[in-house]
Structure formats: C-alpha cells, structure tokens
Amino acid sequence: MGRIVLEQITKSFGSTQVIPPLDLTIEDGEFTVFVGPSGCGKSTLLRLIAGLEDVSSGRITIDGQDATELAPAKRGLAMVFQSYALYPHMTVRKNIAFPLRMAKMGPAEIEKRVNNAASVLNLTDYLDRRPGQLSGGQRQRVAIGRAIVREPSAFLFDEPLSNLDAALRVGMRLEISELHKRLTTTMIYVTHDQVEAMTMADKIVVLRAGHIEQVGSPLELYKNPRNKFVAGFIGSPKMNFLEGDEAKRHNAHSIGVRPEHIEVSDSKGDWTGVVGVSEHLGSDTFFHIHDTGLAETITVRAGGEVGFRHGDRVHLTPRSDVIHKFDAQGLRI
C-alpha cells in the first residue's frame, strides 16, 4: 500500500514561498518522478512528503491517514539520499539492519531480512565491509538495501544517481526499475535529468519554481506538452523553437519542432541552412544548422550514415503533423 495525497501544500522559508499551494495524488504502486531544473522545489517537495521538513500549510495523507504532523519515522516511508547517507562507522550489515533494530525487531528476523536484501542486491560478499571500502555503485545498493528491508509503503529517492559516473548510472537506472517491477511498491524519484524521468517513470511531474507545470506519462509529456517549458525540458536534444513569420504561418506566436521530426536533404526542403557542428553518435547524427533565417541554430537528428560536412548547404523539412504551436504566454494551442 502507498497512496500519497497532497492537498494545498505550501512551504515557506522565512518570507519566501518555495512551494505555492500544490495538489498532487500519487497512486499506490506508481513510479512517480519529480523532474525540473535545479531550484525548482522538487527536493523540498520530497522532503515534505518524508517529513524532514514541516509543511507551512496544507495536508499530507498516506494511505488515507493524515500524516501532516507525523514524525518521519512514523510515516512508513524509506528514503535513499543523494549522498547515500550511509553510517560510516557501521558495516554494511549493520547499516542495512539499522532501521530494523530501531523497529525493535528480533535478531533472527533481522538476520533473515538483511541476508535476503543482500542477495537481491548482490551485496552478500560485502556485508562485513564499511561504506568507506565500497565503490559508488555498491554504496548506492547498500542505501537501497537499507530502504527495502523495512518493507515501506513507499520509497523516496532524492537524485540517487547523480554521484555515479555515466556508465554506472545507466546500470543502476535499470536496477531500480527492475526493483520497482518486482516490489510493485510506490516510488517517488527526484531528478533533474529528463532521461532518467523518461526511462523510469510511470508518471512524470514537471516542476518549475514550485509550480507543477504538467503531470502525465512520459509519452503524454513528449507528445502533448502543455507549454513551452515542458516542451523544452522533455526530449533530447531540445526542441527547436521558432518565432516570427514561420510561426505566423501556423497561426501561433511560436512553434516548436523536435530535432527528430525534421528531414534533412541536400536537394530540396522548406528551409535552407548551412551545417555547423555535427555530432556523430554512431546510431544517430545531430546536425546544428546555421543561417536558416529562422533561429540562431536548428538542431536536426538524422541517421548515423548521413554524412554532411561542415559548411554544406542543406535543406530541411519539418514533419507537419508534429509541429507544436504555442501562444504568446507559451501555452499550447
């Protein structure tokens, strides 16, 4: 179980309000990702749910029970911190056992659960080491182990992968997703990385300056962003935004076209420009096109074999069915 409902939650530090009134429901078993640029309030929101910060007003309900005033430990949630927050003076075994010890569980049961968690997370060989002797990925697993032994009603992850290197991050991303599939427990995951959000989430909550910009599944956000901010934030490389005459042709203040929705050709097309930098990823190539007269640069995604060179004159054609139109306020039309 783990249905979390936030009603008219606000949070102020002194006189600055970091979270304006906010409503959000997280369904049981859902993998929800809070995503947004740094300083958007996503971590604060997570800490409010955890109980590590008091809400300034509003109500938090967990499984139908009012948890607004409840101490963190009493909420039945487990949290994985950005720095892992392992206890440096305890062995891995003791780290994982700590929440059970605090819950006054019997030694035999603790032993069983710790061993179980360790085998799930491939930590069995490291149980008697200290966190200082572990690699980043292993520490991450210990932190997760410490969270799962309690069998919480929901897991909270605060940018758990940001301290890992790129290769490890992809692996851990998969592991956490698999863990969710197996446990089917509610997970709330905070990140600034839209790739993590897209790949892991059932539901993405895009935040900016404490406001929820849009809530939806990854594909919903990709296909139907509610405004320019979400459109620009979701998807990589970033969506191209055009204003002026080209936008007027579509009866909009501005239009957005994703790099993958533009055809590039050497013979014909709607727009023309000159190839600047091309980034070859092998499977794909990203061209940065200049001198189109539409925007500073337009990014185009093409196949890996497409071989234009720096300075080549090319023609671009946007796919007309996936052009996003926005009004002067940046809202989708």
Partner: peptide, 18 residues
C-alpha cells in the same frame, strides 16, 4: 557530519536519543 546521515537515521525510525 552530513545532515543527510542524521536525516537518514530519522527516516530509519531512530528517536532523537537513538
């Protein structure tokens, strides 16, 4: 001492004394 570690302990159910 990182604050996060103390918060982790709080999440893990430790009372202030513990």
């Amino acid at each position: 001492i990182p604050t996060e570690i103390l918060e982790a302990a709080r999440m893990d159910g430790a009372t202030l004394k513990e």
